[in-house]
Design a protein around this nucleic acid. Structure first.
Lengths: 225, 225
DNA sequence: TCACTTGACGTACACCTGACACTAACCCTA
DNA sequence: TAGGGTTAGTGTCAGGTGTACGTCAAGTGA
């Protein structure tokens, strides 16, 4: 376009993305992990991720890695870059800078399997994960913090649930993300006051008293990450 | 260390840092800008920044660029990485990814001059800056947002003031950063309730009634960014 | 000494938050 | 069909927080 070249002092580094993808399973907040098939850290668990390709945007790379390593297909709006990890010694192969992304999986995306250079892909406990490769534990910790921050001022929790859901289910999502218990009376008060929910009229039978089903209110947009 | 090499699919990109450094001058929030001496965007204003050197940490690079381009010396604790800009077309020279940093200049750091590849360094209005090179306007906008967020739950504003200061002066810092007016009575109440200030006993004369001078209370640590 | 400027202070109200205990509705089993 | 088990659903009060707002105090300078 211009004939301009990179100046000689421009350090060339490996550019990577990593993705901390979250979903709810059985009342627990899970994070999507892969088992590495290559050195370094072969057979260790890690966040899905990999190198950005030439001409590829950062968020595209994140989506691609997620797709090829875990078969999870995601829309760009559920993805947010949150921190860049570039410490000199973080990867034994050389200077590799990783732009870490946070992903929220809409309800329904569940089955995963390994692919690419990974042996295995699995949903594992986000708050009590196994030992992770590289500095991925630090990345995960920061991702959880960001997720909790976002929870407060977005309707993020709705993403983790199907179209219709009960209030106790929604409360479960909050509790799983915050990793602590909430008072149900205060929770209901707070949520209903926001008027982002409309009762669907139906109820869900289960073990005890049937619960009212809600859905997201019209013209309430879900938080874009 | 291991004999491991970067895999062939590892895209090599130029790695840069940019710094949005803020200070208060004359009741206005200013940002430190440099006038570029090289193509592309020669003679345009830009945020100080440049390429990371081999073996150099990101925050070290940010401090070094600030020092060489603007003669501003800064401690690491006043620096925070806040976003990474990696869009494909953002730099005409090729794929250059920039890790943007926010810097708060303690009061007293004022005189600047160009250096390195820059013609000039100057403090200019942060909320109404001149036209900026590359995507630096987007970087600046995001930096301002982050600064405003930080203001709320840190004692960040104290950094912008000398050791002793009056409450109206402190309020001025808040107003300059938030770019809006605050009620002085509520401001006092809020600030004094935090008990991070101690009256120095002295007063400062000026046009109207002399104001009480305050200093940061003992054992109140300033927010690390 | 009077007008002007700026600092300092208190009150009243709306709102939000968190603590807390009981009733309602349904299922299952004896 | 009655009763026990289980989960859903509700109201109130106290304390704190944020905001709006009027008034007096202490200087300066004409």
């Amino acid at each position: 376009m211009t004939g301009l070249a990179l100046p000689p002092q421009a350090t060339q580094v490996g550019l990577a993305v990593d993705v901390a993808a979250f979903a709810m399973h059985g009342g627990e907040l899970n994070v999507l992990l892969v088992q590495r098939g290559q050195l370094p850290h072969a057979r260790d668990w890690a966040l899905p991720g990999g190198f950005v390709q030439p001409g590829e945007e950062l968020h595209e790379a994140a989506l691609r890695e997620l797709r090829t390593e875990t078969t999870v297909q995601l829309e760009p709006r559920h993805l947010e870059q949150f921190y860049t990890f570039g410490e000199v010694g973080r990867d034994p192969r050389g200077r590799i800078v990783s732009v870490a992304h946070l992903a929220v999986l809409p309800h329904g995306t569940v089955s995963v399997s390994g692919g690419g250079h990974t042996l295995e892909a699995e949903w594992l406990s986000a708050h009590r994960p196994p030992r992770l490769a590289f500095d991925h534990q630090a990345i995960l910790t920061r991702a959880l913090l960001r997720l909790q921050l976002r929870l407060e001022y977005a309707n993020l929790a709705l993403e983790f649930l199907p179209d219709t859901f009960t209030l106790p289910e929604l409360q479960g999502v909050y509790e799983a993300i915050l990793d602590r218990q909430l008072d149900k009376r205060n929770f209901r008060k707070r949520l209903l006051a926001q008027s982002v929910l409309t009762p669907s009229g139906e109820r869900r039978s289960g073990v005890g008293r049937p619960a009212q089903l809600y859905r997201r209110a019209k013209n309430v947009r879900v938080a874009a990450l």
